[in-house]
């Protein structure tokens, strides 16, 4: 098997809220076509870290970053980089399903393309079907594409958000606890979907659910209080952790 390419990497990434430092100098490499989990007790800065990878963290008043995030070798925090272009290449799925309430299911899927100026109707149609199929939602919504996106159930809404994200073909997809607001059945279908997405994308998922990380992730990183304690192949992290803290956490003695 050939060596997979590193697509995204962070180098000494630090994240701040005003005077408070939430993430302390974290360096991780992410390979293409893989699922990477970030776990840790709540308040460990894992969401903040994730939100720094597509420069959405800085949208919070008072928040800023230091260090580097390299997307295909280019640091996205360099001065001349427009975050709009970065976010177009790094998709994001949020904790709470958040389709746009004023848009139909169809428009929710293709809105990213529309923003980029795609006007060709048949191309949009094709992209919408393609993305919805990939998000395993097509069969459920193909007859009601003009209904508002918010008319769907929670799990369907989250898959709609995933379809919206993959419609613009970003090489990297970030997921911020994407199943924490969902029931177990919807969670299972989202996890199944992640395994499918892995065939094309680099997925980085923050989760508070260790079983989920163990089930889906190729690599896992463990954070405590903004510091990276340990990272490596999930199998190793969950069966043979090197650090005492990691072992305590995954066996439930801590956190």
């Amino acid at each position: 098997m050939e060596e997979a390419k590193t697509i995204l990497s962070t180098k000494n990434l630090e994240c701040f809220f005003g005077d408070f430092q939430a993430v302390k100098g974290i360096s991780i490499d992410y390979k293409e076509k893989s699922i990477n989990a970030i776990i840790g007790p709540s308040g460990c800065g894992k969401s903040t870290y994730l939100r720094s990878l597509n420069r959405i963290h800085e949208e919070i008043p008072g928040a800023y970053n230091k260090g580097e995030v390299n997307l295909l070798g280019k640091n996205i925090y360099e001065k001349d980089v427009d975050p709009v272009l970065i976010r177009r290449n790094i998709g994001m799925v949020f904790q709470k399903p958040n389709p746009f309430p004023s848009l139909s299911i169809f428009d929710n899927v293709v809105i990213g393309l529309k923003l980029q100026g795609v006007k060709n109707k048949s191309l949009l149609q094709e992209k919408a079907e393609h993305s919805l199929r990939k998000a395993a939602l097509w069969d459920e919504v193909k007859d009601k594409l003009n209904k508002p996106g918010t008319s769907l159930s929670g799990g369907q809404q989250q898959r709609l958000c995933i379809a919206r994200t993959i419609a613009v073909d970003p090489p990297v997809i970030l997921m911020d606890e994407p199943t924490s607001a969902l029931d177990p059945i919807a969670t299972a279908s989202i996890e199944e979907l992640m395994m499918e997405l892995k065939k094309e994308f680099c997925v980085i998922i923050v989760t508070h659910n260790m079983q989920q990380a163990a089930r889906v992730a190729d690599n896992t990183a463990f954070f405590v209080l903004g510091e990276l304690i340990e990272q490596g192949a999930s199998e190793q992290i969950f069966t043979n952790p090197k650090q005492k803290k990691t072992e305590d956490y995954i066996t439930g003695r801590f956190g």
């Binding site: 597509n54 959405i56 970065i86 976010r87 709470k96 746009f100 309430p101 004023s102």
Partner: peptide
């Protein structure tokens, strides 16, 4: 909600597009 605005920004919307998409149209 803040996550609506973030959803728009995360898709690569400019500030203007975010305002139009996530703020103005649902508030009509």
């Amino acid at each position: 909600p803040g996550h609506q605005k973030e959803a728009a920004l995360a898709l690569g919307a400019t500030r203007y597009e975010m305002i139009k998409l996530a703020i103005l149209s649902p508030s009509f």
